[in-house]
């Protein structure tokens, strides 16, 4: 067994999230990121997944290593409390040095539970560094400040926001190994809390995982205005987001909100339509690459942080933009 953190070798454990027996895209991408980063022959990469999987569910994973699979039916929908107990036991047994978790809703809830259970240093929200470097840099105070974080504990947990995909394929797939939960979870133990059901309300890719986001604010004028954004997002293969005002008005669900009391996003392309660009909104955009602003007010602060912009009424600009793009882009 390797020494924990000794001689520079890392033992990675990637948490693989599943829903309905299918691995989350965010987890698959992160697995490949870690494989891409790991030093072959020196670092170890392993994964953990809880709950029954569909046949072939692990096939999207390439690279060496082991996936520990706890296949029990009662883990099909697990709370962070249950998952962190199992992961903590596995991490200790396998002398894991770095646990990597995709920053999904479930991942965000799991990571601090696991940090407490393992005594690990939790590093979240890193826009630079992360599991790929010893120091992680993350935005604080609405993204006005970038602070360097240094882990002090021998085990580290990285809660990783969306990273651009890496192409990592090959002929090798990780080996799946059954993980026995019996020593860690009594057969008749009542889960508290227990996840009873998940009700689907939207089919769009979640904004925290989206590579392209079309977001609207108060300037959209109402929920109807967002139909234009839905159209534009469909053309570009993106997801629709919203500012706080649009959510507070009830035009969009809170899950679509970007900013300080919503989500932080890291798209390659962010289109802000009818959003003025208040500091609390920009707080969610620290990792956005190209920013495009459409706003009627030429003095809107959003233009100060945008790469491209157009001054005009969103309800006039968007239909023309959709027409032009519709002629050029293949239907997605």
């Amino acid at each position: 067994m390797q020494e924990r953190g000794g001689n520079g070798m890392a033992a990675y454990l990637v948490f693989l999230e599943q829903r309905d027996g299918i691995l989350a895209e965010a987890s698959v991408n992160l697995w490949h990121r870690v494989q891409h980063h790991a030093v072959p022959g020196a670092d170890r990469v392993s994964g953990f997944v809880a709950g029954p999987l569909r046949p072939g569910a692990l096939e999207p994973l390439f690279g060496a290593g082991v996936v520990h699979h706890a296949a029990e039916e009662r883990l099909a929908r697990s709370s962070e409390t249950t998952l962190s107990r199992l992961l903590a036991a596995l991490a200790a047994r396998e002398a894991i040095t770095d646990i990597v978790i995709a920053s999904t809703s479930a991942g965000k809830r799991l990571a601090p539970c696991l940090a407490q259970a393992t005594g690990a240093s939790l590093l979240s929200g890193c826009v630079a560094g992360g599991f790929q470097e010893p120091v992680c840099r993350r935005p604080i105070h609405c993204g006005s400040i970038l602070v360097a974080c240094v882990p002090e504990a021998p085990v580290r947990i990285y809660l990783q926001d969306r990273l651009p995909q890496v192409l990592f394929t090959g002929t090798e797939h990780p080996r799946s190994v059954a993980f026995d939960i019996v020593p860690h979870l009594d057969a008749d133990e009542k889960m508290n809390p227990a996840v009873r059901s998940i009700t689907e309300i939207s089919r769009q890719r979640d904004i925290s995982e989206a590579g392209i986001i079309v977001a609207g604010g108060r300037g959209m004028g109402g929920p109807e205005g967002f139909l234009l954004l839905e159209k534009l997002a469909a053309l570009l293969g993106g997801s629709v987001g919203a500012s706080r005002s649009a959510v507070d008005e009830g035009w969009r669900p809170h899950g679509d909100q970007i900013g300080q009391t919503g989500k932080s996003v890291s798209p390659d392309l962010y289109i802000a339509a009818g959003i003025s660009g208040a500091l609390q909104h920009l707080a969610g955009l620290s990792a956005a690459r190209t920013i495009v602003a459409i706003n009627a007010d030429p003095d809107a602060p959003v233009f100060g942080v945008a790469d491209y912009g157009i001054v005009g009424d969103v309800l006039a600009v968007l239909p023309r933009l959709i027409d032009v793009l519709g002629d050029v882009l293949p239907k997605k």
């Binding site: 940090a115 935005p139 400040i145 974080c149 240094v150 942080v305 790469d307």
Partner: peptide, 17 residues
Amino acid sequence: LVRFCSAEPVTRKRVCR
């Protein structure tokens, strides 16, 4: 368990075309 060091201000300003 996590040490925060060296805070630096972020310049968000971009030149909008």
